[in-house]
Design a protein around this nucleic acid. Structure first.
Lengths: 215, 215
DNA sequence: TAGATTGTTAATCGATTAACAATC
DNA sequence: TAGATTGTTAATCGATTAACAATC
């Protein structure tokens, strides 16, 4: 099945499906139909059918639906959640420290193996049982040694581009960027941004808009 | 100007414009034209013109562009970044703890005034100089006392809906949800989700897809 | 004034929704 | 078998891009 490249929107829906499917599974259900999934996520039935059709390795069965285990496995494979990738984290500030402590990433196939920071007080220490190195040690050899393919950027915005350049030079394949910056990287490096400001902006704006309406 | 409701996509672009504008301003520039903004963010010139036109309180000047300070102020107003709202945080785990320590939220107009957790070892303590209370204290009176309008959910997925229900009962207006769950709340409560799994999924998928192509 | 850049209308593109025939 | 539910084609909707007249 899995042929055409998924759109960004489709990709964003996959973890949502995954969550619902796991819930249904833990309730003892074995199969699910598109309407149920659609209802759980306030989506259109047809949209769900298309999404699922484009990621599933097995056909659905008319009048029955689809196997939940199969769907979970298919989605997890596509999202890479069932093969662990090593990642390094740059910027051991408050967010970076939290991430080094956080165990949950392994559920998504991500294992942070080391942190890097420019603060000399941090390098040589351990945070969340993971070694912290000085950024000067962020080299291609080190990345290879750690077998890391993903770099997580948790430095302040002004420092993000420099860190990205270093990661690119060290031959990292993907960057998960928490700084509120658009990073300039070569085409062969993949960047996924997560912008807290953006997310909060949506909330603030909706609140503002609603209150405006009321007046 | 500011009349029509912004689309979600437009809203997501506003913090990006803001970031670029602040950079340009710190480089001493006073005005900017749409093409420059478009180039900085890899966007279409016309798209930028439309976005900016729909949020700006001043018209642009042909052959000159727009005032940077004015644009910054307009965007910050729309996004509520220049009026501080009080927020409470539920779930003082690794992520929640990081947020209680994090100073950066005030730049986005958000001030976390207290944490709540079900762990009795935490309640009564302070984290990041903010008091932590037991979730049983999460009541309408308490919310009023703290003058909080936003609730931040940083509990594990399985607990998120219960917390959301409590927040709704306590008359919170908006929820910023970091749990990987779709929350069911009444229409008058606004939810903005930030899903780490989703963001990471985009990265994993792109890496997977690219490696697949190469084989 | 001349021309760069604006604001806005029309054309295109892509994603979602509707419709429906196929089938376990 | 009958019918619920699938997969897929066609219609709609919304967002982006192109085109262009207006103007400081």
């Amino acid at each position: 099945m899995r042929k055409a490249k998924l759109t960004k929107n489709q990709l964003h829906r996959l973890p949502e499906y995954l969550w619902v499917l796991k819930n249904l599974e833990s309730n003892g259900l074995k199969t699910v139909n598109s309407q149920t999934l659609a209802d759980c996520l306030d989506l259109n039935n047809e949209l769900v059918r298309k999404d699922i059709a484009s990621i599933s390795t097995e056909n659905g069965v008319p009048n029955k639906g689809r196997k939940i285990v199969q769907l979970i496995s298919d989605i997890e494979t596509i999202l890479g959640f069932n093969t662990i990738s090593n990642a390094i984290l740059v910027g051991v500030g408050s967010l970076g420290t939290a991430f080094l402590h956080y165990k949950g990433f392994e559920d998504f196939g991500l294992k942070i193996v080391a942190g890097f920071d420019s603060n000399p007080l941090l390098s040589g220490k351990e945070v969340g049982n993971k070694p912290v190195y000085d950024v000067s040690e962020l080299t291609e050899e080190k990345i290879k040694e750690l077998n890391a393919h993903i770099g997580i950027i948790t430095v302040p915005g002004y420092a993000a581009q420099v860190v990205a350049d270093t990661l690119v030079k060290a031959k990292i394949q993907g960057i998960w960027n928490f700084a509120p910056t658009k990073l300039n990287v070569p085409d062969n490096v993949i960047v996924s941004n997560i912008n807290l400001a953006t997310s909060l902006a949506v909330l603030s704006y909706e609140l503002y808009f609603r209150n405006e309406k009321e007046n």
